[in-house]
Every structure is written in C-alpha cells, then in structure tokens.
Simulated scan of single mutants.
Amino acid sequence: MTTTASPAINVKGVEKSYKDLHVLRGVDFEVQKGSIFALLGSNGAGKTTMVRILSTLLKSDAGTATVQGIDVAADPLGVRERISLTGQFAAVDEILTGRENLVLVAKLRHLADPGRIADDLLATFRLTDAGGRRAGTYSGGMRRRLDIAMSLVGHPEVIYLDEPTTGLDPEARIEVWDVVRGLADTGTTVLLTTQYLDEAEQLADRIAILHEGRIIANGTLAELKRLLPAAKVEYVEKQPTLEEIFLTLIGPTSGANTGKENAA
C-alpha cells in the first residue's frame, strides 16, 4: 500500500476579518514539499493576510493551518524555526555591506562560522564580487537577491515570498525567477504570492487563484487551462492563457478590500 507524503503547508477553512471587512472567507489549500506554489490574486484579494497567518504574525479567526505538520496557532515558535519570510520590499540594511548583512543574520540565528555562511550564500546568489560593497549601492535585482539570501540563512524548510518582484525591471525579475527555481531544486518549499500572471505561469508547480477572500481555482497550469475551452482561429487551436483564465474566473474587478489588504 502506498502512502501520500504529508504536505509542507496545509490550510483548512481559514477566515480573517477586520471588524466588518471579511478578508479571508474559508481558505483551503495544500503545498507539497519541495514545490513552488503560487497564490495568485489582485490587490486586496487576501494574499498578504494569508502569508502573515502562516508566518505566525497574525492569528486567524477560524480554521487551521499547519507548516511541516506544526499548527501555526498552537506552536508558533516551532513554525518560526522552520520558515523564512521575504516581504514585498527588500529588508536589507543599506549601510552594511552585502556580506555584513548575511553575517548579522547568521549571528542572530546563533549559527557557527557566520563568515563562511555569508561567503557561501554570496557565491550561490552571484554576489561575491559585490559582497564588500554597501547594500545601498546595489541594483534592485541585486538587493532582492541579497534579501532572499538573508532569508535562507539557517536552511529554512519553507520560504514565503510575498510579491518578490514588485517594482523590479524585467531583467531583475528574471534574476529573481532563477533564484526561486533554484530554491525548489534544492528541496525548499516555496509559497509565492504574486499579482503577475506571467510569474505564476513561469514558476509555479501549482497555482491557486484567491479572489475576494476565497480560493476560486486551484491546480496545475494545464488543469487551469482546461477550465476554458481552447479558441480556434482559422483551424489553429489556441489554448487560453493564464491571464484569460484569471480574468474569467474573478469577473469584473470590484476594488473591494484593496485599501485594507495593502494596509494589512
């Protein structure tokens, strides 16, 4: 008899409200170990709120969520020991050099030989030559790569990337995409939130569309494409794009929750 491995992340019936504003309305999804899972949605859909709950930074009103089998509400410390979070904006100290940023994080985690850890991560993220420069002199793509490298100090089992390419130019976005693919290749579980449809299409093993606090679709790209019939133009079958699937599923944009989600 075969057994199915337990998921790295398991979310069931999670709800969250701010007074009378319902941000999450019974969210369910699973993320398999070593995979890239994209939580796709417009501004205000509830993506950041979901990540904050999974990071133990925010408590849900109802439902359960586990990370590596550990309940985020019952044992937040146990969850924090296994995760890392990279927010929407790079959290690097621009006064310190790239290497000093990494050494600082390694020391805060009480790891042995922080200098070696820093040098290894600089090499992995192609930042060795820039390691002695102040992070404030880095380009947007370099700063984001350093930010993700800092998140990997201590080898977290699960990493959350909350809109990691927001504000980056196309070249820098591709650099970050390469980093994300590399994380999954080494067995790290990645939960990626994004509002960029091409980003989810390029990176994710599975994609969940979060709209107005609910998961309205969840599957591989191929499975989501089957939700819409292929268009035929002059006898040539045209498969629907992820953008067409997304816009069809969410319907007209209501703009609801946008301000609150950004604030949350």
Rank of each mutant, 00 (worst) to 15 (best):
L161T: 06
I215W: 00
G34V: 08
T137R: 07
K107Q: 15
G34I: 03
E163T: 06
K107I: 13
A222K: 12
I70Q: 07
T188L: 08
G98D: 06
K19M: 09
G154K: 11
I95F: 13
D198T: 13
T2M: 07
T128E: 10
L168I: 13
G69N: 10
A65L: 05
R143M: 03
R144E: 02
P76A: 10
E237D: 15
V92M: 10
K33Y: 00
I148Y: 08
T220G: 01
G259E: 15
L58Q: 09
S254A: 11
I53H: 03
T220R: 08
D113M: 10
A62M: 11
R116M: 14
Y235K: 14
E163K: 07
N218R: 06
L210T: 03
K33Q: 11
A135W: 08
E199F: 02
G167H: 11
E171V: 12
I250L: 01
Q239S: 12
V79F: 02
S42R: 12
E201F: 04
R80P: 02
E81M: 10
K12T: 15
G34S: 12
F29N: 02
L77K: 15
T49P: 05
K260R: 14
G167N: 13
T2P: 14
E81R: 15
A204T: 08
A38Q: 00
T188W: 10
L21C: 12
R134Q: 12
F29M: 14
V23T: 12
V180D: 00
V179Q: 00
D185M: 06
T188F: 08
L40G: 01
P164M: 05
R181T: 14
F125L: 05
S60K: 04
E237F: 11
E175T: 02
A184G: 06
V27Y: 00
Y18C: 01
D147K: 07
A263K: 10
L242E: 02
G140R: 05
E261H: 07
L161A: 03
D61P: 05
E234C: 08
S55H: 03
V176I: 15
A45T: 05
F89L: 08
D185V: 07
E81F: 09
L102I: 09
A130E: 02
R126V: 09
I174V: 14
A256F: 10
A118S: 06
D28C: 03
E157S: 14
E163N: 03
T48Y: 06
T193F: 01
T193R: 00
I9R: 01
V79W: 04
P240E: 06
E223S: 04
L111F: 07
G26W: 06
G41V: 12
H155L: 09
I95C: 04
I209Q: 00
A112D: 15
T56N: 04
I216M: 10
H22F: 13
P76I: 12
T186S: 12
A204C: 04
T97R: 05
R145S: 02
H110Y: 13
A184I: 06
A231Q: 15
G251Q: 09
L40W: 01
D119V: 12
K33R: 13
T253I: 14
V190D: 04
T194Q: 04
P114G: 12
G182F: 09
S42Y: 06
R25A: 11
P76Q: 10
G69V: 12
K47V: 07
G115F: 04
F246S: 01
A112T: 15
A45Q: 01
V105H: 11
V23G: 03
D93Y: 15
P114Q: 13
D120K: 09
